[in-house]
């Protein structure tokens, strides 16, 4: 009809253009993956390089390198997912192990004290699903990951971590941790605050509040609170601090390093207002919910 020119004389019947069209289900990137991409975009824009590394790792990198005492309550078998098979890592760098053990036992520097806790290399070699992606940070800072870590540096990851926690609407056994750190000659609490203010403002979260807290591997340490853009509620959005000398010295780092971690899911909930993480993540997900989820950009 178009080629023959018949269209010139044709009568086109009217459609009901207001009627509903057939439903179409488009391909779609998972809403948490969209959120992760958004976070990665922001961090790359702020000068951060991405890290990668193993989900199954030695407790040495997950905890010992972070100056977490071996008898710390968070390291007991209830909270971590220890591996049964395989059980231990074969090789750890001897000199690094020695420096880390000394920091645990004696502290660092002439004015430092160690922990009055047992330290056993066998425990350090035991394998577990990482409880946080700070294990990647330990690998990068120590040079084990093979990256250049002469200051200044900024690194990040948005990767899975594992917690042996009760399952509910806001907690799963697996979650995405946004991990980031900055290394420079002199970093202060003000630099840390300025970095977070900038990061969160990218997501419309302003009025960040810093509440001093305690964490074994950072000092000072802060819980971060942000105001929900819609409800106005003050919500915990992350943990941060400046790495302790007892962590950095054994890893061979002479500059200051500030770091933070937060759950991607929490950020997404804050930004989009969705309420039950189980609809989204895992085999019990609801395809309808995912199909209806608003695009994150």
């Amino acid at each position: 009809m178009l080629a023959s020119g018949e269209w010139r004389d044709a009568e086109f019947a009217d459609y009901n253009v207001e009627a509903d069209a057939a439903e179409y289900t488009p391909g779609k990137t998972h809403v948490l993956r969209q959120a992760a991409e958004r976070v990665k975009d922001v961090l790359v824009g702020m000068g951060f390089q991405e890290m990668e590394g193993p989900h199954v790792d030695a407790d040495f990198y997950i905890n010992d390198c972070l100056f977490m005492p071996q008898d710390h309550p968070a390291r007991n078998h209830w909270d971590r997912f220890a591996l049964e098979q395989p059980e231990k890592i074969d090789d750890l760098p001897d000199d690094l192990v020695e420096r880390v053990e000394r920091a645990h036992r004696e502290g660092v520097g002439s004015e430092g004290d160690g922990y009055h806790s047992p330290w056993d290399e066998e425990f350090a070699r035991s394998l577990a699903l990482r409880g946080h992606t700070t294990s990647l940070t330990a690998r990068y800072l120590s040079g084990v990951a093979g990256a250049d870590v002469e200051p200044p540096q900024r690194y990040f990851s948005v990767e899975k971590a594992y917690r042996n926690d009760t399952l509910d609407a806001t907690h799963l056994l697996e979650f995405f941790q946004i991990e980031g750190w900055v290394m420079a000659e002199d970093l202060s609490v003000r630099d840390l605050m300025g970095t977070f203010r900038e990061f969160y403002s990218q997501f419309g979260i302003t009025d960040i509040e810093f509440k001093p807290t305690y964490n074994p591997y950072t000092e000072p340490s802060f819980e971060l609170f942000g105001r929900h853009p819609e409800t106005g509620e003050l919500i915990e959005i992350g943990n941060s601090g400046i790495f302790r000398p007892e962590m950095l010295e054994p890893l061979g780092v002479e500059a200051d390093v500030m770091a933070w971690g937060l759950a991607l899911e929490r950020l997404l909930m804050l930004v989009t207002g969705f309420e039950d993480i189980r609809d989204v993540h895992g085999t019990l997900c609801d395809l309808e919910f995912l199909r209806d989820a608003e695009v994150v950009y």
Partner: peptide, 26 residues
């Protein structure tokens, strides 16, 4: 710092120049 009041401190963006990027796998 706690006695001074951390929330009294004025945030500043660190003047540290670095290049951002993703891993190849990512």
């Amino acid at each position: 710092g706690r006695a001074y009041g951390f929330n009294e401190l004025v945030p500043r963006y660190p003047e540290v120049g670095t290049i951002g990027g993703r891993t190849e796998t990512s």
